[in-house]
Computed example of a mutant assay.
Amino acid sequence: MKKITVLLAEDHGIVREGLRTLLELSEEFAVVGEASNGREAVRMACQMQPDVIVMDIAMSGLNGFEATRQILLSTPQVKVLVLSAHSDDEYIRRMLEIGAAGYLAKQNSGEVLVHAIKEVAAGKPYFSPSVAKRLRHAKEKARLAGAPHPNPAPTLTKREAEVLQLVAEGLANKQMAAELGISIKTIEKHRQQLMNKLDIHDTAGLTRHAIATGVIESSIQETTANR
C-alpha cells in the first residue's frame, strides 16, 4: 500500500516531534520532512512534493498564509491542511480563499488529525467540527443579514507580503535585505509600495495591520521589540 507522504510545517520543535511520532505510529503515513518556518516549507514542498502539508499559521519569517499561497502556486497538486491554535472566522476565510484543503484547531485529538490527513489526501475537504460549525454560522449570518461582501483587501505581491511580515517582526531594512537576499534599495522600494497600497505610512501602522490580519501574532512582535 502506498503511504501518504506528509510534510510538517510548524515552528515549535516539540510540536513537530509530537506530530511525527503520532503519524509514524501508523503504517499509512510517511513523514518526509519538517519545516520550522514558512520559507522552509515552500522550499521543501517544491523539492519533495508531498501528498499533504500540515501547516501552522503563526510562523516567523514567512507565515502560513503566504507559505500556503506560494506552495499552491508552484505545486497545486499538494494538499494543505491547516493546523492552528487560531480558529477565528477571518483566519479560516483567508486560508480557504488561498486554497487550503482543510482546517483543524490544535485543540483536536490526534485521531481527528489522522482522519483529516486521509480525507484531504483523498481529495476531500475536511474541517474539524468546531471550524465547520463556525463556517455554517458565518454563512447563515451573512445570508440572513443580506449584507454585501466587504471589499477585498489589497492584494500584495510575494515580496510585499514578506516585507510586511519582517517589518512587523521588527527587522531593520539591512536585516530584511540579508534575510531575503536582495539589496537594501530594493527593500526600500517594496516597503514604499506596500505603504502606498495599504495607505499606511508608518511602521507602527504596518505592525498593527499585520497583527489584525493574522500575518503575525502580537506575541511575536512584542518578543522582537524586547530584544
Rank of each mutant, 00 (worst) to 15 (best):
S26W: 02
S218E: 15
L194Q: 03
L171G: 09
A116T: 07
E140F: 13
K2C: 08
K158C: 00
S87T: 14
H149M: 10
I184W: 00
V80H: 04
I98L: 07
R134T: 02
L180Q: 11
E169V: 10
L23Q: 00
K133I: 09
C46S: 12
G13M: 13
K185Q: 14
E169W: 10
K124S: 14
P150E: 14
H190R: 04
R208Q: 09
K141E: 15
V32P: 01
I57P: 03
N108A: 00
E27Q: 14
I98H: 02
R20S: 10
E10M: 02
A9S: 10
L198W: 07
R69F: 11
T5Q: 13
I14Q: 04
E90F: 11
E28A: 12
S109W: 06
H190G: 00
D56T: 01
T21Y: 11
D11H: 05
G110H: 08
L194G: 06
E24S: 07
S84H: 09
T207C: 05
L113Y: 05
K79W: 08
N108I: 09
R159F: 08
L194D: 08
P125D: 08
A147L: 14
G181Y: 13
V15G: 01
T68G: 01
V42G: 00
V215M: 08
Q192A: 13
I4G: 02
I14A: 03
M44Q: 09
I220C: 02
R93C: 08
A132L: 05
A58K: 13
T5W: 12
M48W: 01
N173M: 10
S74D: 12
N196M: 15
S130L: 14
A85S: 11
L8R: 01
P50L: 07
E40W: 00
M1Y: 05
A100N: 01
K185L: 07
G170E: 10
K106G: 02
P76E: 03
L62I: 08
R69Q: 15
Q192R: 14
R20A: 11
A121F: 10
A210T: 06
S36N: 01
G123C: 07
A177W: 09
K3R: 15
I53A: 06
T213L: 14
H115Y: 14
H201S: 05
